[in-house]
């Protein structure tokens, strides 16, 4: 279950596929340092022109919400239909809005 202290740390890799789009999570890899992580990410996740820019982030730096909190975190937005445009009846004559 545990990694020895001599194991290379884990990094999360995010790739921007082209300018104008956000970086998106591609996967992860082990590397001794950030520079090597970037180089390995290039080799592993962009072999077919998948990207123009890469971020690598130590996996240990990711703070994630817990699945147990799904209800309290995300349920409150389910009962607010007035945040969606379809909640409002606007006659067709008004045109696109």
């Amino acid at each position: 279950m545990s990694q020895s202290p001599d194991a290379w740390p884990l990094w999360e890799v995010f790739v921007r596929s082209k300018n104008g789009l956000a970086h998106k999570h591609s996967g992860s890899l082990h590397a001794p340092d950030a520079e090597t992580a970037l180089k390995s990410a290039r080799d592993v996740y962009t072999r077919r022109s998948e990207g123009v820019s890469i971020w690598v982030i130590p996996s240990s730096a990711v703070v994630a919400s817990s699945p147990d909190e799904r209800e309290p975190l995300f349920a409150p937005s389910d009962d607010k239909p007035y945040r969606h445009p379809t909640f409002y009846d606007i006659p067709d004559e008004v045109g696109h809005m």
Partner: peptide
């Protein structure tokens, strides 16, 4: 080289279940 990459994607997926690469 692709097959090496496939191995890495899969080891990473296995690691999300709480087992280390070394194991």
């Amino acid at each position: 080289q692709d097959e090496g990459g496939h191995g890495l994607y899969l080891y990473s997926a296995a690691e999300t279940l709480g087992i280390s690469r070394e194991e």
